[in-house]
Computed example of a mutant assay.
Amino acid sequence: MAVGLHSASGRRGRRGRRAAMAEINVTPLVDVMLVLLIIFMVTVTLPAVGVPIELPESRANPVEEAPEQITISVASDGRIYVENEAIASGAFPEALEAIGRTGDGRLPAIVLRGDRSLDYGRVMAVMGELGRAGFTSISLVTDGSVTAP
């Protein structure tokens, strides 16, 4: 067991060390903010829909995304997806009936993604079923292009 003898000057030095720090330690704040920034960057760059489709090119202006929109994709093999769910052959009209209305009673906007290798008639058949089901707001998704057709 150690016994220390302190002089009066030693006590003053010790009191100075016990005084409240006037500096703010920002290192934990910076660490948390960097982690949040990385999470935000990763989630923003992820594609909105997981169905792999090679979109056709267009010079059209981008369309704003709406929270109530439904994405319908037509893959290169002709299979139809509502969001990320594959629809069985012939069950597309039933799948459209199952889509609920928005909070104000309207049908949601439809974003149609069709593979560039598809026949024009296949995409038009899907659009025809959408129109028949009452969906009037349909946006076609394309990749950006720098050259005019």
Rank of each mutant, 00 (worst) to 15 (best):
S73L: 08
E83R: 07
G121F: 12
S89M: 08
V111I: 13
Q69C: 07
P67W: 07
R113T: 14
S117K: 13
A109F: 11
R59Y: 04
R113D: 13
P62M: 09
Q69P: 10
E64Q: 08
T102A: 03
V82L: 04
R101Y: 12
E83N: 14
V74F: 05
T71K: 11
R59H: 03
P56T: 12
S89V: 06
E54C: 13
A86Q: 12
V82Q: 02
L118S: 11
L55N: 09
R106E: 13
G121I: 01
P67N: 10
A86T: 12
A109Y: 15
I70S: 00
V74Y: 05
A95Q: 11
I70A: 04
N61Y: 09
T102I: 06
I110Y: 15
R116D: 12
A91L: 10
R116A: 05
V82A: 01
R79D: 12
R113C: 09
P62Q: 00
R59S: 05
N61E: 15
A109P: 06
L112W: 05
L107Y: 03
P67S: 13
I99K: 06
A95N: 11
D104Y: 13
Y81H: 01
L107I: 03
G78V: 08
V74D: 03
Q69M: 13
A98K: 12
L112T: 02
A98D: 09
A88I: 03
V111T: 06
L55R: 14
P62I: 00
G100I: 10
D115N: 10
A75Y: 05
I110D: 04
P62Y: 15
G114T: 11
A98I: 08
T71E: 05
L96K: 08
V74W: 02
D104F: 15
S76W: 03
G114F: 08
V111W: 07
E64M: 14
E68G: 07
Y81G: 06
I87V: 10
Q69H: 10
P93F: 05
A98F: 10
R79L: 00
E68T: 12
G100R: 01
P67R: 15
A66G: 09
A86S: 05
D77L: 09
A95V: 03
L96W: 02
I110V: 06
E97H: 06
P108T: 13
P108H: 06
A91V: 04
L107T: 02
G90D: 12
E97K: 04
Q69S: 07
I70E: 05
A86K: 09
R122C: 05
I99Q: 12
G78C: 09
Q69L: 14
S73Y: 07
Y81P: 03
L112V: 02
S58A: 13
S89H: 13
G103E: 11
E83T: 00
I87H: 14
A86L: 01
A66F: 15
Y120L: 14
L107G: 00
I110W: 12
S76F: 00
A95S: 07
D77H: 08
V74N: 01
E94I: 02
N84L: 09
S76R: 04
E57W: 12
A88E: 15
A88G: 14
G78A: 05
E57G: 14
L55V: 08
Y81C: 01
P93T: 09
E85R: 04
E68L: 14
E65Q: 07
P56A: 13
S117V: 03
I87L: 13
E54A: 11
